[in-house]
C-alpha cells in the first residue's frame, strides 16, 4: 500500500528530474508527504454516479480492479520462504489474477455509458488480451527451464545463472509486454488524453478514481516483481559471493523491482505514444511469433541436452 503511494511520488520526482523540474517539494520534507495529502484530497472529494450509468457495476468495477491488483501479492516471494501462500501453482495464480484485471476495465467502460469510457475500455481490453498471449508464451519458456510452477522454486532454479542470460530476448519482450499489459506509456492508448480524455475512467471521481489509479500502480509493481522473479533471480544476489549474500534477500528483491520501475517511468518520460494499429501489429505479428519460436528453440535445446 505505502509502496504504491510512494511510487506515485517517485514517478513525479523522476519525471520532474528528467524534464528538469523539481517535482513535488512543498508538503513535508522534499514533498515526502505529498502522496498522503493526495490520498486525503481524493477521499474528501465528491463521488459522482452519472445518471445514465449502471450504478451497481459502476461502483463495483473500481473495487474489483483494486482488489485484483492486491490479490496477486499473496504468492509473490519477497525472500526465501518469505511469502504469504507458497502454493505449487503460484505462476498460474498470478497469470489468472492478472487476466481478471480486464473485467474491471470492461465493467467500468460499459457501466459508465459514456462514449469515451466505452471506447477506452474496448481498446484497453483488446490491448491487454493481445499482450497477455505473449506474456503467457514467455512464461512457458521460463517454465521449461525451471521445471516448476512454484515461484520459490523458479527463483531457486536460477541459483547458478539468472534466466535473463539464456532468455535475454524474452526478457526484453516480457518487459515491453508488461508495459502494454499495465496500460503504461508508450502503450497508454486507452487513456490517450488527446482523443479519449481519460479512457475507461473518465466518469470516475474521488476514491473510485483513486482505486483505479492505485490499481494501475499496484499492477506495475506486481508485474515488475514478476519480471524480477522470472528473469532476474528474485531475491538472489548477482554473484554467489559470501559478502553479497550477507545483504538480506528482500533488499535485493526490492532493489531489482525499483530498477525495473525506474525504467517504467523513464520510458514514460521519454517515448511518444504508439499508434493503435502499430500496437496491435507489434503484439500479434512480432511478439507472438517470436515467443512461439523461442518456445520451440528452448524445448529443442533442452531436449538435446537432456537426451
Amino acid at each position: 500500500m505505502v509502496l504504491i503511494a510512494y511510487l506515485t511520488y517517485f514517478e513525479r520526482k523522476v519525471i520532474g528530474a528528467i524534464q528538469l523540474r523539481k517535482g513535488p517539494n512543498v508538503v513535508g520534507p522534499f514533498g515526502l508527504l505529498q502522496p498522503l495529502a493526495d490520498g486525503i484530497k481524493l477521499l474528501t472529494k465528491e463521488t459522482i454516479f452519472p445518471e445514465n450509468s449502471n450504478k451497481f457495476i459502476f461502483a463495483l468495477s473500481p473495487i474489483l480492479t483494486f482488489a485484483l491488483a492486491l490479490l496477486g501479492w499473496a504468492v509473490i516471494p519477497v525472500d526465501f520462504k518469505l511469502v504469504l501462500a507458497d502454493i505449487n501453482v503460484g505462476i498460474m495464480y498470478v497469470f489468472a489474477i492478472s487476466s481478471l484485471g480486464v473485467y474491471g476495465i470492461i465493467m467500468a467502460g460499459w457501466s459508465s455509458n459514456s462514449r469515451y469510457a466505452f471506447l477506452g475500455a474496448l481498446r484497453s481490453a483488446a490491448q491487454m488480451i493481445s499482450y497477455e498471449v505473449s506474456i503467457g508464451l514467455i512464461i512457458i519458456s521460463v517454465l521449461l527451464t525451471s521445471k516448476s510452477l512454484n515461484l520459490t522454486e523458479i527463483v531457486m532454479a536460477q541459483k547458478d545463472y539468472w534466466y535473463v542470460i539464456p532468455h535475454f530476448p524474452m526478457f526484453i519482450i516480457f518487459f515491453i509486454s508488461t508495459l502494454a499489459e499495465t496500460n503504461r506509456a508508450p502503450f497508454d492508448l486507452p487513456e490517450a488524453e488527446s482523443e479519449l480524455v481519460a479512457g475507461y475512467n473518465v466518469e470516475y471521481s474521488s476514491m473510485t478514481f483513486g482505486l483505479f489509479f492505485l490499481g494501475e500502480y499496484g499492477n506495475m509493481i506486481l508485474m515488475s516483481s514478476m519480471s524480477t522473479i522470472l528473469f532476474l533471480g528474485g531475491w538472489l544476489p548477482p554473484f554467489d559471493y559470501e559478502f553479497l549474500s550477507f545483504i538480506p534477500g528482500f533488499v535485493w528483491f526490492l532493489t531489482k523491482v525499483c530498477i525495473l520501475l525506474f525504467v517504467f517511468l523513464w520510458v514514460r518520460a521519454t517515448l511518444p505514444r504508439y499508434r493503435y494499429d502499430q500496437l496491435m501489429s507489434l503484439g500479434w505479428k512480432l511478439f507472438l511469433p517470436l515467443s512461439l519460436v523461442w518456445i520451440i528453440i528452448t524445448s529443442s535445446v533442452l531436449f538435446y541436452l537432456g537426451s
Partner: peptide, 9 residues
C-alpha cells in the same frame, strides 16, 4: 480494504 476505501469516501 477496497470496499472500505470506497465507502469511506
Amino acid at each position: 480494504f477496497s470496499v472500505g476505501a470506497f465507502s469511506l469516501s
